[in-house]
Design a protein around this nucleic acid. Sequence first.
DNA 1: GCCAAACCTTGATCTGGATCAAGGCGGCTG
DNA 2: CAGCCGCCTTGATCCAGATCAAGGTTTGGC
Lengths: 209, 209
Amino acid sequence: MLNARQLAELARASSRHEVLAGTELPDDGTYSNVLSGVVKLTRILSDGRQQIVGFHFAPDFLGRPFEPKRPIKAEALTKVALCSFPRTIIDRMADDTPELGHRLLNHALSELDEARDWMTALGRKTASEKVASFLLMIARNVVSANRSASSVSFDLPLSRADIADFLGLTIETVSRELSRLRADGVIRIANKRHISLESTGRIEGRCGD
Amino acid sequence: MLNARQLAELARASSRHEVLAGTELPDDGTYSNVLSGVVKLTRILSDGRQQIVGFHFAPDFLGRPFEPKRPIKAEALTKVALCSFPRTIIDRMADDTPELGHRLLNHALSELDEARDWMTALGRKTASEKVASFLLMIARNVVSANRSASSVSFDLPLSRADIADFLGLTIETVSRELSRLRADGVIRIANKRHISLESTGRIEGRCGD
DNA sequence: GCCAAACCTTGATCTGGATCAAGGCGGCTG
DNA sequence: CAGCCGCCTTGATCCAGATCAAGGTTTGGC
């Protein structure tokens, strides 16, 4: 899709770097590929209430210009490796290479589909449906060392507080629903953060959709 | 941005039509411009719970291919006038005309910003903040016959049930919050559907952000 | 290894918004 | 114009999830 000259130019302009968990990613006029790790996007109300409005998992694109007036913040949830390019270069290449433009558009549209799925969860699902849907989403996005036909295990990249801010719940409710799933034999929890789904089907049945 | 030949081709391929309130708009492989009226996008859970995940007001774009597996439905809320074009033509022109591609991308990105604003409302705002935010959003999007410096009046294009499905509330709660805003002198309500905002500032102060 | 801080779990109680219930309007239709 | 039907409002009660409270567990620093 890109020609040799373009690839060379990209290679020259690209820069790789790694940031630690907790680092805020400034809008520095670049697009980045997330090579590893997880980034959260948070929207904040004036009194401090927070809502996580999206995640970027490897190998996602990241770094679009938000409407400057919307207070959205991007922050690394884990150690994150990025490969970034000046936005000007990508935008110029997209003009010459329709396929690249399509990729940018399709990426935005699939983020939109996801945002709308989560609107539905936030507006119409119960707490336990929200937690089940969340676990399934993470399982699908976190590359897992341990994966068999129907059972998956992975490390949660989020604290209970972040899960709560994503699902529109409190940390206590998140904790209780996780405990309930464990008591029902649907998941196992090791070390607070390590989750094993006994069967993805059992979880899917609790997502409400 | 488009040359004369392209404009002529578009004009030839375009078709205008009008649909009544309540009509479902099928995904018929076209892009449309909404010339007048309001369209709602609804996502439905298997047991019938609904969430409205977006609106299209004039002069919005409409009619992108949803991920086919997501059960999203587009339906006219009012009488709607559309001007539609085969998707193939627009997509081909976007390849030749970067500016058109940019418009499609920017449109998707602003829909994404809006979806994320509503995620925040659904997850973290109280019922009365949700209703206030909703009224303000409608006021900004419905072209109003009656508009002065600080006061606006308009007809709600939604029933109480639709407002509830958008805000993740029940119709009773929506009704009560509207009554409270009226009792507090922030809005006036005529004929159930006609709303006057005494001052946009008073409403803004109740949106939580 | 001990301590403190950060994070998580669990229990008790409270409450915002849901649910249940009972009318009140318009707006059609005959 | 009566009667019906679809919407909306308001009141009473209930409950899912919030809040308040009290430990438990893990991590990291010294």
